[in-house]
Write a protein that binds this DNA or RNA. Structure first.
Length: 441
DNA sequence: TTAGGGTTAG
């Protein structure tokens, strides 16, 4: 690295800001290893890492879900270097914990920061609001907002955008719209993100007309729809089966200067597949040809799934071989959709072979893979391996999903299962399904 | 020079 060389030859004496800027650049591309290497380099010079240096790397680690590494650095900073954390350090760590669903630790850390006399600021509260909303816990999010107001902090546009998402997730669109309108009353102008969030809510709740209305309204307000807005809208059209409108918007993006990204591409391919237009998806896939977009395992997973679902298992198989020839690594989704395709066609032998290959390839089946294969066996009245699979699931600590369980219940009712199987089944029913009335009729 | 929001496979 040129930078390192210059430093060693003392041709350049970087100051803390220069180091921090370099580290920020590395972190932007998730190059945490090099960022830490640079931190170590700083330690050998007169220019010691500062709180900014640590915060930058800790935040990047948290974003990449490397929370344990983040805490290691946090402790090193505190106990070895004697640098005290500030509100930014705590906010990053709390967000990292929330993103992983580690709520107890997050709330412990929040308490710890208050004990250290560091008060949470608007951004800290917003992190909590966002975390609750992503789980649909809008009551809790509203409670956090009330606490922040009590403490004299003013919720900002980001806080409300999260709240809109929360209500959209719950399908409470009237409430979402109310929040949107209340922002204007508070003197906060909805941004492209705000519009896109509400638009996404309308799309997900199948109110495409309202979504289209928002799309036009934002342009009228001088806000330019960006790639995310287009992606959301395209997905919305596909969701209600309006493939032509979706495709038209996809073609229109370029004209508006919004270049489709890999996310757009996946949305379009999946949209066609889900609407039984696998040929359309495949023709776009072939049109795009070899390149970055088609070197994405997720793209193959979508197409294999689409082909497998609609009786084109040969195409699915070809795609599977194609991706391996390209040097791509099948992941647990790839195997699962391929197995599902085989099961769909009653090709249980091929399904089983592939299933067995997973552990060998270092990609063990997950709970979904087991459920897919079990469903294949049950639907084809092929009970030989069912008990063995159930036993393996129990060993691995997996449980059954609702749709697989209901197939089992049908077979129990028909008297097709023996006692030992029933006992095993009982162990694999997840707690949250035990009182599900839809499974008892 | 350090932290927050919207789209993304079974």
């Amino acid at each position: 690295m040129l930078f390192k060389k210059l430093v060693k030859q003392k041709l350049c004496e970087p100051n803390v800001v220069m180091y921090n800027t370099m580290i920020k650049g590395l972190c932007k591309f998730s190059n945490n290893v090099t960022a830490v290497a640079l931190l170590r380099l700083m330690e050998q010079t007169n220019c010691k890492p500062s709180i900014v240096t640590y915060n930058t790397i800790i935040d990047s680690l948290c974003k990449d879900k490397l929370i344990d590494d983040a805490f290691k650095l946090f402790k090193e900073m505190l106990f070895e270097k004697g640098i005290l954390p500030n509100v930014i350090t705590y906010t990053s760590l709390i967000r990292g914990l929330c993103n992983l669903g580690r709520w107890d630790e997050a709330s412990k850390l929040l308490k710890e920061m208050e004990d250290d006399n560091i008060s949470p600021d608007v951004q800290t509260f917003s992190v909590l609001v966002d975390a609750f909303c992503k789980e649909g816990k809008v009551e809790e999010a509203e409670a956090v907002i009330n606490i922040m107001i009590e403490r004299g902090k003013v919720p900002n546009i980001v806080t409300y955008n999260s709240l809109i998402d929360g209500y959209c997730l719950r399908g409470e669109m009237i409430k979402a719209r109310e929040i949107f309108d209340s922002m204007t009353l508070r003197g906060l102008a909805p941004s492209v993100v705000t519009y896109s969030s509400l638009l996404n809510g309308y799309c997900k709740n199948l109110n495409i007309e309202k979504a289209v209305q928002m799309f036009h309204e934002m342009s009228g307000k001088g806000l330019k729809p960006n790639v995310v807005t287009y992606n959301t809208m395209i997905q919305g059209f596909f969701l209600v089966g309006r493939c032509v409108a979706a495709r038209r918007l996809f073609d229109e993006m370029y004209a508006q200067g919004q270049i489709p990204n890999e996310c757009t591409y996946r949305i379009v391919l999946e949209g066609f597949c889900k609407n039984r237009q696998v040929e359309e998806a495949l023709s776009l896939f072939h049109l795009v040809g070899d390149g970055k977009l088609n070197s994405d395992i997720a793209v193959y997973n979508i197409l294999i799934n689409g082909a497998g679902k609609y009786g084109k298992v040969d195409i699915a198989k070809n795609l599977f071989h194609d991706l391996i020839d390209k040097g791509l690594q099948p992941d647990v989704h790839t195997y699962t959709v391929m197995i599902s395709g085989f099961c769909q066609e009653g090709l249980l032998g091929e399904a089983k072979l592939l299933f067995l290959k997973m552990d060998e390839s270092g990609c063990p089946p997950d709970d979904v893979t087991y459920c897919v294969l079990l469903q294949g066996y049950l639907k084809n009245r092929h009970y030989d391996d069912v008990e063995m699979l159930l036993q393996e699931m129990d060993d691995r600590g997996y449980s059954l999903d609702a749709s697989t369980l209901s197939l089992f219940i049908d077979d129990i009712a028909a008297g097709l299962l023996d006692r030992s199987m029933l006992k095993l089944l009982g162990k694999l029913v997840p707690k949250e399904l035990l009182n599900d009335p839809s499974l008892c009729d």
